Amino acid sequence: MAHIDYYLGTISPWCYLAGDRLEKIAARHGAQVTYKPLDLLQLFDRTGGVRPADRHASRMEYRAQELPRWADHLGMALNLKPAHWPVNMAPSSYAIIAAQEAGGNVGGLVQGFLRAVWAEERDISDDTVIRDLLEAYGFDPALADKGLFVGAEIYGRNLEQAVEAGAFGAPFYVVRETGQRFWGQDRLDFLDRHLAG
């Protein structure tokens, strides 16, 4: 059985646009997914990337064209300038980490946080929003308070593991058994083909 480490940032529009395609691919191939939310801005800093606020205007202008293009192509709602972006990724990431420990529809929860930012104008750093999303995806809302120390530890460890695995952006998918790396929601078809052999 293949195992996919999915490095993600809960405020990444590109993670949002991945939708549920990873989960469908994993189900088709009997693969397991480990969700590894991390501080995406620190990942950029550590691996030679540039934070969005510091990018050249031409890059940001292209991003402003490309995101709606992909959203239209995928049939997904997208607010290019969400009311709550950027926000602190740690609280939502801790909730995902706690949910993964508890077991359940973690993929749905991840997509719920991303949709909240990019399509629903919700602040995913707000405790009420985090609790609402946990409950909506079948988790105990109290997970928002449980394991904060462990969540913080794993959140930091995910960043270190991402750097070690060769990740430098998000979404970033690494197949543990082969070391094959796939960067971006537009590489999911290649991940699918790789798992098919």
Rank of each mutant, 00 (worst) to 15 (best):
I4C: 08
Y7P: 03
L8T: 00
G9M: 03
G9H: 11
P13T: 04
P13Y: 02
W14K: 03
Y16R: 01
R21I: 01
K24T: 07
R28T: 14
H29T: 11
G30Y: 13
A31W: 08
V33H: 07
Y35M: 07
K36D: 02
P37G: 05
Q42G: 08
R46C: 06
T47F: 02
T47G: 01
G48K: 07
G48S: 10
G48M: 10
V50M: 11
A57T: 14
R63C: 02
A64M: 09
L67T: 01
R69H: 10
R69F: 11
R69C: 02
A71Q: 07
H73V: 10
M76Q: 14
L80D: 02
W85H: 15
P86M: 12
M89T: 14
S92R: 10
S92V: 04
Y94V: 13
I96E: 03
A99N: 05
A99I: 05
G104A: 00
G108T: 12
G112I: 07
G112W: 00
F113Q: 00
A116F: 07
V117R: 06
R122Y: 00
R122M: 06
T128G: 07
I130C: 01
L134H: 03
Y137W: 14
D140N: 13
E153V: 03
Y155W: 10
N158W: 07
E160D: 12
A162L: 11
E164I: 14
A165N: 10
F168R: 03
G169D: 02
A170M: 14
A170Q: 09
Y173N: 07
E177N: 01
Q180V: 13
F182L: 04
G184T: 05
Q185T: 04
D186Q: 14
L188R: 08
D189Q: 15
F190E: 12
L191I: 09
L191F: 10
D192Q: 13
R193W: 15
L195I: 10
